[in-house]
Amino acid sequence: MKEKVLEAYDKLAGDYERHVDALSGHNAFYERPAMLRMLPQEMEQMSVLDAGCAAGWYTEQLIKRGARVTAIDLSPSMIEACKRRVGSEATIAACDLTEALPFADEAFDYIVSSLTLHYIEDWMPTFREFQRVLKPGGSLLFSVHHPFMDVKLVERQDYFARTLLREVWNKPESGAVEVVFYRRPMQEIINVTSSCFSIEEIVEPQPSLEHKDKPEAEAWMAKWYERLMTNPHFLIVKARKSK
């Protein structure tokens, strides 16, 4: 599984670096606006872990809000793209979220993880590491595929089963790339999170109209707006470590 994720995202790195910010409406006009609204506007003096940084879009946003950012990703190609985006303004390293994190206890005020955790089969070791490296009172904000969306991709639909799924994404540079990820029921998402943190907010985002007048948004809005207004595609969870 890990090798398949690594292979896919090394192939996709060029698209994430040069096209996703403007051309992928599910990121630019849907998930990202919802996540940003849940982050503090001012993050001065905060130490933040961008867990699954990809090409560094969130890393850059966190830096702009004043945070001291450590960005990690499984893909070396994504790490290089992130470095090209933010240079020396963040600490950036290849890192596997399924293994022990190379950080001290209580190192971070905030962990942000965008559309990453559904590539991990067993969340418990990862969430225990998140709990370990977060300071008391620190926050975890993550987004994942919504389980109601992904259950439609299952051949033998069993909502309660954790299921390995495959999808083919067609991107401008990489062409067709098979991406694999896990679908899990809502109760597993909530129960694993709440075993390590106190859940503060759950958001099932709807499309943002902030960018609707941009030319690159027009076609995406026409195709996806009504569907995403009535069918959840992603899920966002904000949680806090007890003091």
Score class of each variant (00 low, 15 high):
L164H: 01
E155R: 15
V151Y: 10
R183W: 02
N191Y: 08
V180Y: 03
V154E: 04
E155L: 15
R162T: 12
E173P: 01
L153G: 00
E167C: 10
S139H: 12
V154T: 09
V192I: 15
S174D: 03
D158I: 15
V192Y: 07
G175F: 04
G138Y: 14
S139D: 07
M149K: 15
P172C: 07
S195E: 05
V180C: 09
P172L: 14
A161W: 06
R184N: 04
R183V: 04
L164K: 01
R184T: 06
Q187M: 13
Y159L: 14
V179Y: 01
L140V: 11
L165E: 02
P147D: 02
V144P: 06
L141I: 12
L153M: 08
A176S: 09
Y159M: 08
Y159E: 02
Q187T: 09
H145L: 09
V179K: 06
V180P: 00
G138A: 13
V144M: 13
N170E: 12
T193G: 04
S143K: 13
V151S: 09
I189K: 07
S139M: 10
S195G: 08
N191T: 11
S194E: 06
R184L: 07
V192M: 11
K152P: 00
Y159F: 15
V192Q: 07
E167N: 05
S143V: 11
S143R: 09
V144T: 15
Y182K: 04
P147G: 03
V144L: 14
D158M: 14
